[in-house]
């Protein structure tokens, strides 16, 4: 009896082990199968701005690099309108099956404070940051001031007389110049243009006295020796312009940068998110993207889903506090 009992136990153990081993294998297989299964078809990337702009080019190059890693095509679709609101809302309301993701610029964290839409970071699953571009306080090359201190001094003597061009009311560069003016204790007359390029053109023609738009927009003017940059508004000096000081090191505690990142519809599975985030990280850190970013005056900066979420929440809080003080409308 004992023998039989032992035999049975032995058999059952062997059976169980076999089962669990098989179960383990099966589990492993199904896990692998699932990982393999995503992505199994093309992924749609929604860009909320028109083709050709900085946002669109960034998104397309990232998409091209991510395709190589994911081995499925990424189809870039431009859904324009509502100063980006249409496209971003489209992503928000897309199915969270991992086959739709979107590009978002800094404006995503500003829309609610500006009253443009109900968008805010908590309505998305944040995937990661790709780019960063600092505001650059830029004046004509023949202006009488050569440093940011001299400029502030001049502005103090001419309160309200300095005309500063920006890329539209409530745009990130409007906020940059106002935030700087507040910290420096000066007052500018803001002149909004339809985008940063016309503002820079007006600066070259001496129709305005300064602009605080992105470094990329003023790069060719600086290289043509028509403009000079007095300071950048990022935390650290820019790699492309190492001689230009930051506002922080000059004692003005203000930092305004533009950035671009990617988001998923809320509730996308963590496994899918990880696959995409890994592909995004590789795409941002690739040499050709770094080269592209540098040529455009941007920096390729990757932030993981967690870091990007914290960062976007901080930005959202900053703009929600700051924009109401601007007295728009």
């Amino acid at each position: 009896m004992k023998k039989i009992a032992w035999g049975l136990i032995g058999l059952s153990i062997a059976f169980l082990v076999g089962c669990s081993a098989q179960g383990g294998q099966a589990g492993g297989q199904s896990g692998q199968a699932e990982a393999k299964k995503y992505p199994e078809k093309e992924i749609t990337l929604v860009v909320p701005y028109a083709p050709g702009g900085a946002s669109d080019s960034t998104a397309r190059i990232i998409a091209k690099n991510m395709e190589e890693k994911l081995k499925v095509p990424i189809v870039t679709v431009n859904k324009t309108g509502g100063t980006g609101g249409v496209g971003m809302t489209f992503v928000q309301s897309s199915p969270n099956d991992g086959y739709t993701f979107g590009y978002v610029p800094v404006e995503m964290t500003m829309h609610k404070a500006l009253g443009l839409s109900e968008l805010e970071p908590s309505k998305f699953d944040l995937l990661g940051q790709a780019t960063m571009i600092p505001a650059a306080i830029t004046v004509p090359a023949d202006a009488p001031y050569n440093t940011i201190e001299e400029f502030v001094e001049y502005a103090k003597q001419n309160q309200g007389k300095i005309k500063v061009g920006n890329s539209g009311v409530g745009s990130i560069w409007h906020i940059a110049s106002t935030a700087f003016a507040n910290k420096a204790g000066v007052q500018f007359t803001d002149i909004p243009f339809d985008g940063a390029a016309p503002a820079v053109t007006a600066l070259m023609g001496n129709h305005v006295d300064a602009v605080a738009v992105s470094l990329g927009e003023v790069k060719s003017g600086v290289e043509a020796k028509k403009l000079k940059v007095l300071a950048v508004m990022s935390a650290e000096r820019d790699k492309n312009f190492p001689d230009i000081p930051t506002l922080k090191e000059k004692g003005f505690d203000v930092e305004v940068v533009g950035w671009g990142g990617f988001v998923l519809p809320k509730g996308t599975s963590d496994d899918f998110k990880k696959v995409l985030a890994d592909a995004l990280k590789e795409a941002v850190e690739s040499d050709d993207f770094k080269k592209f970013a540098n040529e455009r005056g941007m920096s390729a900066v990757y932030k993981s889903p967690e870091d990007f979420t914290t960062f976007a929440e901080q930005q959202f809080k900053f703009f929600s506090d700051f924009i109401p003080t601007l007295d728009l409308k």
Partner: peptide
């Protein structure tokens, strides 16, 4: 001559210049 894009299409051509390592402008 100045590196100024005077219309949206030209802004895209400017982007292409930059991507290919050329800076439009007086130089």
């Amino acid at each position: 001559t100045l590196g100024i894009p005077s219309s949206p299409t030209i802004a895209i051509i400017l982007g292409a210049f930059i991507m290919h390592g050329l800076t439009p402008g007086p130089t």
